[in-house]
Design a protein around this nucleic acid. Sequence first.
DNA 1: AATGAATGAGTTTTCATTCAT
DNA 2: CATGAATGAAAACTCATTCAT
Lengths: 201, 201, 201, 201
Amino acid sequence: MSPRPDVSEERRNQILEAAMAVFARQGFDQTRMDDIAQEAGLSKGALYLYYKSKDTIISTILQFFFTQAMNKLSSFLESEEQLSVRQRLFSLNRYYMQEMKWMTSLVPLSFEFYAVAARQKTVRHFLKQYFKDYRVALTQLIQHGIEQGEFRPIEPEQVAISITALYEGLALLWLVDPDATTWEQTGATSLTILLDGITAR
Amino acid sequence: MSPRPDVSEERRNQILEAAMAVFARQGFDQTRMDDIAQEAGLSKGALYLYYKSKDTIISTILQFFFTQAMNKLSSFLESEEQLSVRQRLFSLNRYYMQEMKWMTSLVPLSFEFYAVAARQKTVRHFLKQYFKDYRVALTQLIQHGIEQGEFRPIEPEQVAISITALYEGLALLWLVDPDATTWEQTGATSLTILLDGITAR
Amino acid sequence: MSPRPDVSEERRNQILEAAMAVFARQGFDQTRMDDIAQEAGLSKGALYLYYKSKDTIISTILQFFFTQAMNKLSSFLESEEQLSVRQRLFSLNRYYMQEMKWMTSLVPLSFEFYAVAARQKTVRHFLKQYFKDYRVALTQLIQHGIEQGEFRPIEPEQVAISITALYEGLALLWLVDPDATTWEQTGATSLTILLDGITAR
Amino acid sequence: MSPRPDVSEERRNQILEAAMAVFARQGFDQTRMDDIAQEAGLSKGALYLYYKSKDTIISTILQFFFTQAMNKLSSFLESEEQLSVRQRLFSLNRYYMQEMKWMTSLVPLSFEFYAVAARQKTVRHFLKQYFKDYRVALTQLIQHGIEQGEFRPIEPEQVAISITALYEGLALLWLVDPDATTWEQTGATSLTILLDGITAR
DNA sequence: AATGAATGAGTTTTCATTCAT
DNA sequence: CATGAATGAAAACTCATTCAT
């Protein structure tokens, strides 16, 4: 009479979120299935009802995490089309700097994956595609800036790479020393310098 | 005095190098003491004659690895004092790009440490100091450039951070996709853009 | 009286047959309650409505399986009383050889029980009784043959044991190598030899 | 100075014997690696120094057990060539009946393997070859008996199968009910009947 | 009656570390 | 100094059984 609602999807997310939290805190290898279970408020056995193995959880997170990051960039670039490229990049910068606060706990996850990428082909290939998509999106934006006369004629892809590298590097420095500087301002300053370097005069 | 030469130091280095190689290949957690012993051509027991534990090996590598990186930067900055700051930075860039080739196998090690830094205070603090030293050194150089009139008056520390972040980010992108671009050129271009952004006009 | 017919017995048999099929295929220990449930087309929970535990299912099968085997022998021996003992044994032989075909899938079950018998007193005792009953029935038949002058005076129980052993042994050889020989003929030949050995001359 | 003797072979046998004892007592699936370790007087870890897995131990036993059984038959058949075939078969019978006593604890092992054979191709194939070798050896002996005029012209292979089946069946009956009869005599009687059935008159 | 989600004790296997030789 | 056999404390994963619905 009362059809039990399907809790599968809910459980899968519940486990995924718990796993992300614990992985970010302890790293993949230092995290026990028991830790995830406890964080999720489930039993160890329940984990295996929804995910085949620890590796499956990890690779599900990999996809979820970077797909979401890419989606955020895409939707950001699609918006505010009336603004100048420079303005849109600064807007993105502010968005990232603000994200930092609640992503505090998730940035470590990125670096877990980067470490794994060095030794696992599948992870490396996935991230390769992610960074490629990221680069392509930024390249288009820079190209647009060149066409609009905002930037001087410069290889747009190289700029895209520079921007990507800059932000990944800043994330690392921030991870290691959150109090070293006022990161919001540092992000803005770095972007300013870089854009000044390509701005048409 | 002692008839036999002390091989302690030799053995310690032998183990360290073997460990670095294997750690870079497999990651800290995926590496067995057996793997290190085999790579070093020693027995597992011998490892414990020279290092108290696996963790001790790891933290010895941490110090060796980043201290060496810092030393390289220092000695680089001390040399070529007759050149312009811009020239010296490009020289450093060439040096790094060239290092990439033989450091191919060691870059993963950095990212192992970055992942660990997220969860271990001691590692994080060590890296914090490393990046601080790095930042200070570059800040001095930039400051010198400003004083020489090469660069416009800009917060030199922010530039130092930007440069550091840029190169760490490039290392990551290169790790994930070594064939994505001509990294030597990309390094140079990125630096060009950045320096163009701060060059006095 | 009850509007709904009692499906209990039906369910119990449904489960038993499913379990026999799966046990024969995978062995007791390698069979999951899930496997039985699936084979029976029921839920895992339903199994526990009709059987207290996996062990209960197994011991119910033990009883069902060998009781049925004994019943078959009994009813066989009771029939064809007008024939000679020799003829009745050959008739039984043909029956067994023909059974082999459809019992193909259940012979493994016997050997599952034989393996268990070695370590579980209750199973061993049950089989002990089964083989005793079997022996007694055959002994009577042989005794009858002696009295009829078909066989020379020989310890009838020893013959009964020999016949039982022979058929159990043939079942094993057939299980291990179904194509080694024409088992129907081998069964007949073996019986011929054995009966020739006790036939009055 | 004192070269440590290689204990590998010793350990491997030590483990094998312990495993055989425990497997015979508890069955393959009911035996824990801990049980074997304890029986062998070693730690669980030590087991894995000498055998890759539980399955490896089992299949090593499979080979050891049946190869040894075959060797015993072979060497038995090669001896006493001056005796009649009948005498040699009775001699073998006495040997087996006497073996029973110390094999008490190992017969269960056979039936463990027979149960596994039903579901594992590799085990089945191994046993298939074993029984084939066994059959061939006995066939030669029977053939010799026919040529010597001891037996009437009868398909020797069928007789070999009958003898093999008879002894395997007797082992089963004995396993289930060691006290049912005087097995030494039953073995002799069974063989007598069977040989009487093929003896030239 | 029936379901199937959830549990958690139990099992195999791994591996850092020790220590007798 | 050096070895490598041995240890045993984990850790991933399984599955009989329970129970809310």
